[in-house]
Design a protein around this nucleic acid. Structure first.
Lengths: 193, 193
DNA sequence: TGATAATGAGACATCGAAGTCTCATTATGA
DNA sequence: TCATAATGAGACTTCGATGTCTCATTATCA
């Protein structure tokens, strides 16, 4: 899928811009193209050489972030082993891709826009598949939809990332805190309502 | 605190603008003042008669939303009864104030800005107080900070609101889904890591 | 009803970000 | 080294949101 006609230099610059865009926009959606260029350590005019539009840049950043998260997910091998263990690997992977996830999750509109027109890599097992597998095995709550569980997963991961940003959680404790919240909730001896 | 010199008409219009602002901005942070005026069913020039600045409007909307959420919280009487029950009432109240919460929670910067300069009504028991009470009684997870639990609470509530917006959850099921997630997490037989 | 408050429509100026372009400089690779 | 690719700085235009203002109309209340 990568354009092989693009030189190494250009390819590297492009990646830097996309990473900077996701990182900056995750923290401030109203950020200026100048802000993004500065974060990418390039001139604003250079940015325009790669992406004609702001919209063009955002679109590319979304697709790119999808790919990055997808890759992280793939690395967690979530189609193997017990669902609980697979989910713990997935959470760790998602936390690692925090910037990208925060960028995607932080803007509901962006996500919606692309869910329709963006066809995911079918060779990569999806999060929903893992959740459904866990539900079938009676490990994940079968009383709610897999999509809801996925939303909760993303929300908790995002919250963990944000908490670390604010200094509320130590970086190295995010994955554990998210995992714990996801698996057990906040009540010690849960009484199902 | 309400300016008694303001006529009933103006007071009503002001409230309508603030409610519209929170509602519109919760769904689209980049929304135009024209969008907000339209949602409030007033002319754009009228809006400027009430709030000189965009910043002025946003500030007022934040303060107002704080008050609304505070009032909801107060109505839940979270300083009374078992913490679990109090938390369930609180979640129901927060879900009811969904728009306002989404507005406040959806923009981390807004929240930060005001947490410092905005002194809360001390006569109203705070969420953190409830959480700490629950932790002291061994009901809420004492292994994490109360602030983290509060973040999770807000995140889950926001996610429930958003899921309802997207049609992923029925409106009447949001509070139950959030409560369940908050208390028990997503795993049927939790194995604490 | 009559005085006044409140509003809506819209013209107008302003301002900042976005986007375009040029030219000199630096980096890359054959 | 040399040709070419890539970049940075900055001038410039465009465009849309914002903020100001006027005037006619409508709503409110004594």
């Amino acid at each position: 899928m990568t354009d092989t006609r693009e030189s190494g230099t250009r390819s590297r610059t492009r990646r830097a811009i996309l990473a900077a865009a996701a990182s900056v926009l995750a923290r401030d959606r109203g950020a200026t193209l100048a802000d993004i260029a500065e974060a990418a350590q390039i001139g604003r005019s250079t940015l325009h050489r790669y992406f004609s539009d702001r919209q063009d840049l955002v679109n590319a950043a979304v697709v790119d972030s999808f790919r990055v998260v997808e890759k992280s997910t793939a690395g967690a091998a979530i189609d193997q082993g017990p669902p609980i263990e697979a989910m713990r690997r997935l959470i760790a992977a998602l936390v690692d891709a925090g910037d990208r996830l925060a960028f995607l999750f932080g803007d509901p509109r962006v996500l919606e826009e692309f869910t329709a027109c963006f066809e995911p890599d079918l060779s990569v097992p999806t999060t929903v598949t893992l959740i459904e597998r866990g539900q079938a095995e009676g490990v994940f709550d079968p009383g709610v939809s897999a999509e809801w569980i996925q939303q909760v997963l993303w929300a908790l991961t995002y919250t963990g990332w944000e908490a670390a940003e604010k200094g509320l959680l130590p970086r190295h404790g995010v994955a554990a805190a998210v995992t714990r919240a996801f698996e057990s909730g906040m009540v010690v001896s849960p009484a199902r309502p």
